[in-house]
Design a binder for these strands. Structure first.
Lengths: 237, 237
DNA sequence: GCATATTTGTCCGTATGTATA
DNA sequence: CTATACATACGGACAAATATG
């Protein structure tokens, strides 16, 4: 049986490993897409902002071809929109988008709860997200609480055990981040829901899946209503 | 009411209209992606096939840059896979992919049935797909029956009234087409399920959504089992 | 195992069309 | 309306990786 760590063949292996961590992630266009994605999610590029090809090319030191390949990926992820002959812009989600985002959450998260098998399911990620949220709430780090809330609900979706649905929900949360960026102060929205996450977890972990699914459905309906009302004041139509 | 053909303002309008029909669909890379997508779905490029840049460039008369942008979209749609420094290949779905495909179908289609509101829902598309399937079955056009089966189940998903989920399921069906292409004779799988589609429709349209959802769940479990068993003989692992 | 040919990854220059100040 | 800036698309170039004989 192979040892988990092979003896180094020569002194370059460390160097190669270091390069791996940078280059193994894929082609340059993939790396560029990763960088721009982070800038958008962090709010450095806000919804509606134009992503100028010449500016970003010179800033990142890549050619237009490479950048345009990166844009294609981001368009498919719905983080940016491409207007023919006008360029690429960070997406500004519509009210309808918000409604659909919460439809997705309801369908996928509720299906995960409903289908949970306590004999095989690993609830550790849920427990961990709740612990994180509690600790961060004690420090009054509400941004951290918001992120832990997201982790908790991503962990719920992950109970479906489907890489494909994980990817869908990742895209959903990314687009919700755009919504939060439009609304300005994002994470205060999550704080009041912390105790409801605890209640949902308790219900699931004790096998009361029907109760848990109902609570989750109400949670999402309330959250959607709150976001929807606030967002309606900020976007046209 | 506007005439379907507006009076020509000048002689160039016809030329412009002709160009529109080609160009209005988006950038050239988008058009190229559309063409390649159709080739893959039609089985002209089979799973595992390599998509050579020089070959396709010369065949379609576009530059490599444009083609590579098209590839990026198709990668994101999961129709092709990109291997660094090796090129682009039509995806060969794994057994696990098949399982996840049917997980998605179960979750999204069952949610659609469960959430249906007969007061507002439009079941016309379901009825139409069933009528088509019946007519085609009478002609023993089993490929047509298969396509009508797909239409019926896409129409079920569409009851969720979410563009986002429609897109997800479109990608799911595209990937299932890859599975069918690997299996050779695809559409005979659909034929035995025709009567079960009728039963599901009857249950939904009479308001028996709980019954309908159970029947749909069993339908999908059976279909998954059949495909899974056949596919396991054809792909490694 | 090696030398060669092919293919990919990336950049640059440029011509053309489109949008905007 | 003109001028400017920008996006679109092409073709050529070269290094690096891969496939082939």
């Amino acid at each position: 049986m192979a040892s988990p760590v092979r003896p180094a063949e020569n002194k370059t292996s460390a160097v190669l490993a270091a390069r791996r961590s940078l280059l193994d992630r894929g082609s340059r266009s993939t790396q560029i897409a990763d960088i721009i994605r982070l800038c958008i999610l962090d709010g450095e590029f806000l919804p509606g902002a134009r992503l100028s090809e010449p500016d970003i090319c010179s800033a990142l030191g890549v050619s237009r071809n490479t950048l345009r390949e990166a844009f294609k990926s981001l368009v498919e992820e719905r983080l940016v929109v491409h207007e023919l002959n006008r360029g690429v812009f960070v997406r500004v989600p519509t009210l309808e988008d918000v409604a659909e985002l919460y439809s997705c959450r309801r369908i996928v998260e509720c299906a995960a709860i409903r289908g949970v098998d306590l004999a095989t399911a690993n609830l550790g990620a849920l427990q961990r997200a709740l612990d994180d949220a509690d600790a961060l709430a004690a420090q009054e780090d509400w941004t951290g609480v918001g992120n832990a809330d997201i982790d908790f609900h991503k962990a719920i979706s992950a109970l479906n055990d489907s890489r494909r649905l994980d990817r869908l929900m990742n895209d959903v949360w990314n687009e919700l981040r755009l919504v939060f960026h439009v609304m300005g102060d994002p994470h205060t929205f999550h704080q009041p829901y912390l105790s409801r996450n605890h209640a949902i977890y308790d219900a699931v972990s004790t096998g009361a899946v029907v109760v848990a699914e109902r609570m989750l459905g109400e949670y999402l309906a309330d959250a959607k209503e709150q976001i929807f009302a606030a967002y309606a004041l900020l976007v046209p139509r």
